[in-house]
Each structure stands twice: as structure tokens, then as C-alpha cells.
Simulated scan of single mutants.
Amino acid sequence: MVQFLRTQSDLAAALAKLVAADPRLVPVLEKAGEPALRRGEPGFPGLARIICGQQLSTASAGAIWGRLQAAFDPFDPDALRRARADRLGRLGLSAAKIKSIKAIATALTKGELDLDHVGQSDADIAHATLIRMHGIGPWTADIYLLFCLGHADAWPAGDLALQEAARIALCLKARPNAREMIAIAEAWRPWRGVAAHLLWGYYHVVKRREGIGVATKPAEAKTVRPAARKSTREAKRNGRSKRPGVVGTKPRAAKR
């Protein structure tokens, strides 16, 4: 059965089950404390908002998203599909983001992507479905599953902050790569997303005490995932971006 985190109480209960299953996480929870559950809007607006905020500061992404929402109210995929690229560009979107958002809007309009179905699917199946779409890389897919849907088992294995948090929390000699992170998290099913929330909170506490800045997410093409890899060109398009905070620009991992 697919598990979702809809309330803070859901997260608290899931954390209790997670640390009971893996006692190594008990001191992690003691140090980090219970993370706050942050949720964004599901569906096309939530997914577009994540893409909108890629590679931007929270303030810049918020300003662009505000203009985009005001220009398209209601935020309908068919309206975005038909919108002129130059109009979207004047709102602050880059050419790559315009292409990605319009491609997703087109897929939704044509019935090639059903976000309601994605929202009820197993994490791995939902992830694989999303990354088949132009403009959605592995990291973006998992951020959507975690923060817009509240999926309890989504696992962004390629996120550098999660990798570093796992290294410190589990006393590993080196930061695990995406493939190793997938293996590590197998023991945490069906609460891998809960572990992600916990490790992001732990990372924030540890790095703040050390006075070290927040790491960035990896290029999405480097993330191991169930489906086939994206092309090199798309990897460059997804690029590197700041870790997400609140889903509303690009959710920053350290503040989750």
C-alpha cells in the first residue's frame, strides 16, 4: 500500500517506525529533531513551480513564479501549451524552462501524462513515469513526489546533501554515490522519503554547526534510476541547482 505524509502527525508516526526499523537513525533523530513537513501544491502547478525555481535563488524563483501565476489564472496546462514563448520569456523563464513546462503541459493536455495516476502509484513506478517526460529529471521527479504529493517512499538518491548526510550519519569513509544510496535505502522501505526528510534536517544542523555552506544537487543525468538514462543534452539542460527549501520556488533540501 502506498503511504503518504499528509500531516505532521503522519510524519511523526512514520519517523517512529523508521528509527525502530534502523536503530542507527536514533541518534540522527535526536540531533536533528523532528523535521517540519512542508507541502506544495500537487498537479501541474506544483510540478511547474519546481521547474520554475531550478538554478535560482528562493527570492528570484518566487518572483518569477508570482508573475507566471498572475499571468495564467487559473494555471491551466492547455493555456501554457498555447502560450507564446516570448510571452513566457518576458515573465522571466529561460528558454529551457519554457520548453520543459510547455512539453509537460502538452503531455497533460494530450493525455500522455496522468498526474492523478502518478499520485497513487508506487514510488519507483511514479518516478519512472515522470522521468519519461521531457524536462523532468530524476531529482525533479523525486522532489515533486516528496513535497507536492507527500510520498513517504520517494528517494532522491542523487541529491548531494542527502549523500553527505548519509556519510556523516552512518559513519561512512566516503560520500556514497547514487547507486550506493539506493542500496543503503533499501532497508528503509516503505519510508525512504521519511529518511530523506530526516537526513536533510540532520544535514542542516550538522553543517550549520560546522559553518559549511549548503551543497548543490547533482546534474540529474548522474542519478541512477529504474528507467533508462536521459541524454547528455538533457543532463546539461537540467544542470546543477541549489538544493530546495520550501516547495514554492525550488524546494531547498537543507530547510526541509
Rank of each mutant, 00 (worst) to 15 (best):
Q3G: 04
F4E: 07
F4A: 09
F4R: 11
T7A: 09
S9E: 14
S9T: 15
D10E: 12
L11G: 02
A12W: 11
K17Q: 15
L18S: 08
A21V: 06
P23Y: 08
L25R: 05
L25S: 02
V26T: 15
L29D: 08
E34N: 01
R38I: 02
G40P: 01
G40M: 06
E41W: 03
G46T: 08
L47K: 05
L47Q: 08
C52F: 02
G53F: 00
Q54I: 03
Q55N: 11
S57F: 13
G62W: 01
A71W: 00
F72I: 00
P74F: 07
D76K: 00
L80W: 00
R81L: 01
A83K: 00
A83Q: 04
R84D: 08
A85N: 12
L91E: 02
L93V: 00
S94D: 01
A96G: 01
S100W: 04
S100D: 04
I101K: 02
K102S: 00
I104A: 03
T109I: 00
L115T: 04
V118A: 08
G119M: 07
G119C: 11
S121I: 13
D122T: 13
D124F: 12
I125F: 13
A126S: 10
M133P: 06
H134T: 13
G135L: 06
G137N: 09
A141W: 02
I143V: 15
I143L: 12
Y144T: 03
L145R: 13
L146G: 04
F147A: 08
L149T: 13
L149D: 12
A152E: 09
W155M: 07
Q163D: 00
A165E: 04
L170Q: 03
C171Q: 14
L172A: 02
A178Q: 08
I184D: 14
E186A: 10
A187K: 14
R189T: 15
P190T: 10
R192H: 09
H197E: 12
V206G: 07
E210S: 08
G211E: 12
G211R: 00
I212F: 05
I212L: 11
G213C: 05
V214S: 10
T216K: 14
P218L: 04
A219C: 05
A219W: 03
A219L: 04
E220H: 11
K222Q: 14
K222V: 06
R225A: 13
R225E: 10
P226V: 04
A227I: 05
R229C: 10
K230R: 14
S231F: 06
E234T: 06
E234I: 03
K236M: 13
R237I: 03
N238S: 09
G239Y: 11
K242V: 11
K242P: 01
R243G: 09
V246Y: 15
T249R: 10
K250L: 14
R252I: 15
R256Q: 13
